[in-house]
Design a protein around this nucleic acid. Structure first.
Length: 481
RNA sequence: GGCUCGUUGGUCAAGCGGCUAAGACACGGCCCUCUCAAGGCUGAAACAUGGGUUCGAUUCCCGUACGAGUCACCA
């Protein structure tokens, strides 16, 4: 059975790149009907951020990436928080020492720093690699602080096959005797993720390509323990576009790059998920780009993952988001938009009508206030706005005539709905021998004060009601007087 | 700097030895229209570069350039 995991460290917000890793990891498991595990990697005690784990969990929850095993869900391989597994790692590390694949190192941080100053590219000089058994025992007995390092082979080459990038080979001489267990008794990522992945039965290790070159070290660990190596699936990086046109790893300076920032900005989780699924992966033989989670589960295969980094394009995300919003039914839309409406809506406004007018004209929920402002209050505008070449409105006389006629007609209309308004006003066009466009242009400018509006003149009047419509026409007439 | 990986239009990308080199976003034009949006049609726009291999290379190999990643008691 395919078993994958998402193993974030709780150091803050949920980066969109992490979310994509979680998504792909989830999809690889679920495409095969396998299991998806959440594991919290909190071994760096200094970078821990309060509440970060909750953000991770809630993000997975709202995106539907439900895990079969994990903290607060349980499972046969718990605990799922690494700080609660501390003893396990020490046990396995000692096993490695006994087998000759690791060793105690008593070098102080000061010594390491000095080493680095002398030769910045040299790395650790393996000073403790060949300490005698007696020396080690004595130090241990004396309580000298220690770390445990992996004993890398000095010669030869280590290779592994990545299912996205193919065979990756590294000369063992490139490999540092990396630290497995830190002086504080906690393991490093380099060690504990291997132990946990094995113990939890993870078959596919899915992670960003920044691990591509360190994976040989992990493969060596599997070999040392005599464990079968997992399938490695490294994902292309997510990039952001810089102002000077260059690209670099997607980060805060590129804009809102955490999932919660995006949501706060009015993006829909479904749209975000759909968009990031397509960053670095392409479905086989699909003519649509629209996928919900079930669609992704069915379509996702590893051979569709690309090797080259993908630049995050906010324009396309925005387009996707707009598409998702437009497809919402009105009830759902009203529910979602509620949190984003900050302004007070006066009683004269037909809120439902207004929102359905706006629904197809916004691309993210946060645009709502700005887009509906003119319904609430007539904006300042200049009478020049009435002039319009396309409708052959070259002077204000015709505008005035139209508005006077419209006012007269409107006063006698009681039912201010779109259809009634339209059929009531149309005779004016006939009477004045002008086009519908010309007639409605004048009225629309008067009731909106804007050159471009969501909806036509009659729809706007339906929203703002009779009194307000007439009042706005009077304002226009005043301007033209 | 060493090592590793990558390179198809501005962006996401299909392609897996022979194609007029798909599609999507963004951009331009036209249509529709009660302005806008949506929708329909349409246009411009790409195989980094030099060598091979081959009857034939975007596709395979090597070099170059460019880009990225990585070289922590961080993950």
């Amino acid at each position: 059975m395919t078993v994958t995991r998402f193993a974030p460290s709780p150091t803050g917000y949920m980066h969109i790149g992490n979310l994509r890793t979680a998504l792909y990891s989830f999809l690889i498991a679920k495409h095969d009907g396998g299991k998806f595990i959440l594991r919290i990697e909190d071994t760096d005690r200094e970078r821990l951020v309060e509440g970060a784990t909750d953000i991770i969990k809630s993000t997975l929850a709202v995106t539907g990436l439900n895990y079969d095993e994990g903290p607060d869900v349980g499972g046969d391989h718990g605990p799922y928080v690494q700080s609660e597994r501390k003893e396990i790692y020490m046990e396995y590390a000692k096993k490695l020492v006994d087998m000759g694949y690791a060793y105690y190192c008593f070098c102080t941080k000061d010594r390491l720093e000095k080493l680095h100053e002398e030769d910045a590219t040299g790395g650790y000089d393996r000073h403790c690699r060949n300490l005698s058994k007696e020396e080690v025992e004595k130090n241990l007995a004396d309580g000298v602080p220690f770390v445990i390092r992996q004993k890398m082979p000095l010669e030869g080459v280590t290779s592994y096959v990545d299912s996205v990038f193919g065979e990756i080979s590294t000369a063992n001489s490139e490999l540092q005797d990396q630290i497995l267990m830190k002086a504080d008794g906690y393991p490093t990522y380099n060690f504990c993720h291997v132990v946990d992945d094995y113990l939890m039965g993870v078959t596919h290790v899915v992670r960003g390509s920044e691990y591509l070159t360190s994976t040989p070290k992990y493969a060596l660990l599997y070999d040392a323990f005599g464990w079968e190596r997992p399938t490695y699936v490294h994902l292309p990086l997510l990039m952001g576009k810089n102002e000077d046109g260059s690209v670099s790893k997607l980060s805060k300076r590129h804009g809102a790059v955490s999932f919660q920032d995006l949501i706060k900005d009015g993006y829909l989780p479904e749209a975000v998920l759909n968009y990031i699924a397509l960053l670095g992966w392409c479905p086989k033989n699909s003519e649509t780009e629209f996928f919900d989670l079930d669609g992704l589960k069915a379509a996702f295969t590893i051979d569709g993952v690309s090797k080259s980094p993908a630049v995050f394009d906010f324009d396309k995300l925005l387009w996707f988001n707009g598409e998702y919003i437009h497809k919402l039914d009105d009830v759902k839309f009203r529910e979602l938009i509620g949190d984003f409406i900050k302004s007070d809506i006066p009683d004269n406004i037909n809120k439902e009508k207004m929102l359905s007018l706006l629904k197809t004209r916004i691309s993210k929920l946060s645009e709502i206030d700005e887009k509906m402002a003119f319904f609430i209050a007539l904006p300042e505008y200049d009478k020049e706005l009435f002039l319009n070449k396309k409708n052959k409105i070259a002077d204000f006389d015709i505008v005035k005539t139209v508005l006077l006629e419209a006012k007269a007609t409107l006063c006698g209309v009681d039912s201010f709905d779109n259809d009634t308004l339209f059929t009531s006003l149309m005779p004016i066009a006939e009477k004045l021998a002008i086009k519908t466009g010309t007639l409605m242009w004048c009225i629309r400018i008067a009731v909106s004060g804007m050159a471009a509006t969501p909806g036509g003149a009659t729809e706007i009047m339906e929203v703002i009601g009779k009194n307000e419509s007439l009042a706005r026409i009077d304002v226009a007439l005043d301007k033209l007087a």
